[in-house]
Structure formats: C-alpha cells, structure tokens
Design a protein around this nucleic acid. Sequence first.
DNA 1: CTGAAAGCGCTTACAG
DNA 2: CTGAAAGCGCTTACAG
Lengths: 342, 342
Amino acid sequence: VAATLQDVALHAGVSIKTVTNVINGWPHVRPQTRAKVTDALDLLGYVPNLTARSLRSGKTDLIALIIPDLRNAYFAELADSVMRAAEAQGLSVIVEQSGGDRERELAQIRGPRAQMTDGILYSASGVREKESHFLRGTSRPIVLLGEHILDGPTDHVTMQNAEGAYAATRHLIERGRTRILGFGAYLGQTDGSAGLRLTGYLRALAEAGIAPDPTLIIDIEPWYRHTGAEAMERVLASGVVFDGLVAFSDVIALGALRTMIDAGLRVPEDVGVVGFDDIDETRYSQPPLTTIDPGRDEIARVAVQYLRERIQDPNSGIPPRHYLSSFELVTRRSSTGTRAHA
Amino acid sequence: VAATLQDVALHAGVSIKTVTNVINGWPHVRPQTRAKVTDALDLLGYVPNLTARSLRSGKTDLIALIIPDLRNAYFAELADSVMRAAEAQGLSVIVEQSGGDRERELAQIRGPRAQMTDGILYSASGVREKESHFLRGTSRPIVLLGEHILDGPTDHVTMQNAEGAYAATRHLIERGRTRILGFGAYLGQTDGSAGLRLTGYLRALAEAGIAPDPTLIIDIEPWYRHTGAEAMERVLASGVVFDGLVAFSDVIALGALRTMIDAGLRVPEDVGVVGFDDIDETRYSQPPLTTIDPGRDEIARVAVQYLRERIQDPNSGIPPRHYLSSFELVTRRSSTGTRAHA
DNA sequence: CTGAAAGCGCTTACAG
DNA sequence: CTGAAAGCGCTTACAG
C-alpha cells in the first residue's frame, strides 16, 4: 500500500530518476520540476523502502551490538551510549543478547542476521582469549568492545582494565587497608576484563609490598548482584579476615555490600569498598559506592567511529587499532576514611 | 564476496529453485540432488541475504521497540524481556530510544526505519493521552506497551496500574500509615502510568476514609534516581509531615530512599516505602524495597504474540485487544512493621 | 521432482 | 537537466 518511487514519478509526470534526484538532494533540478516532485511526495506520503535501497546499495545503515545481557546495568548503559553514538552517525542498532554463551556469540557473529548489518560491535563474553581466529572470515567488519582479545585482526576499544583495578586497589591501600579482597575473578582467566583487573589488583599489592593471599581472591562468574551477594556469604562463612574489597564490577559490589551490611559489617569503617563501572546506581547506594568510571561514552563514540570507517572503506589497509579510554576513580563514601580498628 | 544462491546452484549443477527447495526444507527433493546442494552450500559457506529475501517477501522478521531510555532500569529489563520473547518467535529487535520526546516518537513510528520493520512495540511516553489518532495511518502494526492510551485502534498490553498503586497504598495503610506521599505524579496527567497510579493511590485513601492532601502529591518527571532524590529534598525542605511513601516507580523510590536516610529518617521505622516495577536492584537496596511486580515477562510475551498475529494477518478483523498482566505486591523490609511513633 | 522467468523497489551508470 | 534500463539476491507462481 505504501507509495513507491514509481507512484511518485507518475503523479509528478517525471521519471523515477528525477524523483530520486530530488530526494537525494542533487542540486541540478529545475525549481519547477522540483516543486512538482515535492508536491507528489507530500501528497502520497512517500517513505523510502529501506530494504530495497539496501539491496541495491549494499548497505543497511544497521549495526549489530552483541552484549551478554541488558539486565546487567553496565551493558544497559553501554547500549544506551552506543545507540546515541550510532544515531549521531545515522545508524540504527540491532541488539543481540548472547547470554555469555560461546555458541550463541559465534552464531550471532556469522549468522544471516549479522549479514544484514553493515558491521558488528562485539562485546565478547563467551568466546575467550586466544580464540580470535573465530573473528576471521566474517563478511562484516567487527569492532571489539570492552574486552581485550589478543592477536585479533580487528579494532578494539576498551578501558584500561588493569590500570583501573590498580588505581582502585592503591586507593584502599593508601587508606590503610591491607587485607583486600580481589572480588570477581574468573577462574583461571588471565585475559578479558576479569583477568586484567585481577592483574592490576595484584600489581598494586606487589608495589605496596603486600603478599597476595589466594584466600582473598574470589572467583565470581557471571557478574550479577545475586552472585556477588552469594560470593560474600561464602567469604563470611569461611572466616577469612578482610578490611577492603575491590570488586571487578559494580553489581557484584552492590550485592556484596548488601550481604556485609546484613551481617553487621560497617562500610567503610570495617571494610572499604571500591567497585568498577560507575553505573548510575552507585550514586544512590547505601553508602554511595566509590568506583572506576570507565569512560563509557568515549568507548561507544570511538567504537562506532572505528566501525564506520571500516564500513566505508573495508580495504583501507589501516592496521587494527587498539583504543584505550581514559578512566577515573570516583571517590564516594564506601571507601573514605581509614580503618576504624588498626 | 558472499556466495549467492546463483553461485550455489552453479556449483551443484542445479537450478536456483532446487537450491531454495533444499534450504527451505521442501520435502520433494531427490536425496542425491539434496546431497549435491548441501555440499555446495557448505563448501561456499552460504548465508542467505536477508535484505533480498525481505524485499521479495515483504517481511523482515525485524520489529522495533520504542522506549524512552535504556538507562532506566525498568526499560532495560523490559527490553530484555521483549528481546527474549521476540527471539523465541524468530524475530530480531531494533531498539529506538525516544528520550520521552513526542516528536522523536512520532518520527520513529512513521519514519523509514519503522518501514523497515514488520511491526512496532511502542512504549508511549512523549505522546500523551487522547493523541491516539497519531497511531492511525501507520503502515505497520503497532502494539502499545505498558501505557494506556484511550480510544486507540491498536492492541495494548499493560499492567494494572491503578490496581497496583491501590495495593501498594493499602499495604501501607494497613500498617498504620496515614500521611502517605503519592510520589511521582505527572503534572495534570490522568492517563498514562503516572495518572493511573495516582488514581489507585487516591482510591485506597478514599476507601480508608483518609482525605487526600495535595501537599502529599509530588510531581516528578521524568523518573530517574536523581529526580526522585531531588523531589525528596524539596519535600523535606517544605516541612511536610509524612509517614509513608508510595512511589510510582522504583528508581524514584531509590533516589528518595537515599535522601531520606541521609537526612536521618529511618526506613521503615519513620517512613514505610513501597516502589513500583520490581527491578532487580530493589532486592539489594538498603533496606530492600517493597514493590509491585508488574509481570514484565508476561507483558513482553503477550505483546510480541499480539504483534506477530497482526503481522501475519493484518486484516483479521480481530478488534483491538487490551491485555492486563497480573501483578504482585512483593513485600520487603522497607514497608514492614508498623509505625515506630504513633 | 526441477527449471526459466518475473518482479519486489530501489540506485547507478549510461545516454541524450 | 532528465530519461530508459540494468541489476542487487532473493521468492513465487507457472510450466513441464
């Protein structure tokens, strides 16, 4: 029922080519002809058929964003940033939730749906380090988001994971904490966000001459409020003594916070807490959470920019780029003051 | 570079039609022919071009989800539910953020991007009641989500807003609260979520013989943690006395909670608090927040189902449907016990 | 059971 | 400045 270019051309008494000339703002159209065309356009309420345009032009102005899960506030805020950045560039976004599942991620990268987009922003979660070969042979440009996969042939845009965790840990050490939980490692992972953050945590300890204690390193996977809360229950049950907590994501910090306070621990008096991500909620928790702002808007902006460049010129010969956003330690009440009991 | 049906047909030594027969599972293909085709398919790594398929078939298996803002946890969780429901039906989702802006919403409903989808799930925010005529004349089926726009020619799926607010308010009244804030009205709005929730609040008061007090009805728009926190600052500054708070969304409740606790008010001892939405965060706030679970998964599932029916048969003649999800009052610590000081 | 051909609605050389 | 025509990669009647 929708009007086509054909219909408009008939109404205006011109050829299809003239109509597209008007629509696409080609300058050399006689004013009189232009008027006839715009009238017909308005009259028929013409809306271009993007599918047809895409088939012909080979681009859809659609990009895919593959993330583990929108329920995780970090990814919801990231998706928001990405969509704003994409819109500013005239792109729409298809969001695909992988659930952190490796097979699903691969299917989403290579499946027909991806084929429909011009490019992919991929926040890897199920696919692990050293698997970058899976990214080869894809027909669409890919930009990696927020993870660090080694040896990739693709651009990636991420935060300074190790440096952020280092700053968070050092912040607690400077306030006299010595028994600091490394909260949210992924079992055995040395790359990826979790692995890099663990590295930064260990480096800060080493620099301060504090021997790392394996009982203070807590594996948590995946990162949700409830997994953070449950992990803290296990820590408390184990009787491990600690006076600081560096969480590798805000949501697990918030889950742990809840468990600690229910158990009668005072934050920050008994335990200084630092999170990671600076999600909106950290400003309103009890107490407000010190955290690392990863520069989400910057990450989204640069990633979309990179992807657009790759889309426009897939064979530019520009080697894979690795962009690191600037991060910031945001100090709030959960970490301020020194220990209550030396 | 991607292989086409043509390429596969050439490789297999058959016609295009035979290849599609195999791909689309048409039963009557000779096993031998089928084998040749599947071999060629694998060899060339054939992935169908969805754009071409769409142009021909007239459907894209893409639906748009128009919501105000993914930063709002309610909408992030709703988007998650919708995407899961859509995926179960073989549909992908383009998320469009309207920012609650009326013009943007209209553009998103009628623009070429919407034209590219098979249908639209629309969580109205900028467009207000009595404007349902804007939904006429759209070329794609629309299902309204979570708002109640009168006289619409479209299906809508929503929660029982008034009943939920009624239950929340009654819950506080039963626990001895009499000065209950109606927190989060939209100025002058009587329809939409805010308006309906206000109605339910007022009805509960009326039933309990409590005269409504205009100074207890607090306008907040839009609903964010920070607008909730700021509104509570104004309430405290005004000196209004209250012992209960029914918030029309969780995020404004959580913002207000933070302000109250900073001001030395005890929750629930001094103020009993009930929120609305049952976002994950309410389980982990200090104290955990009593709230109304709106049945988000049910809403998403039914909405996608309705939309799919409309897509499959746009002229079924089935009159517009109005589905109300079942809701539940989830009691947590923020509202338990009776007032500390009668 | 399989093939040849039309056509979805655009854009893009190519003419004039 | 404007037109006629090809073709993007599929699906869908229509033949045989």
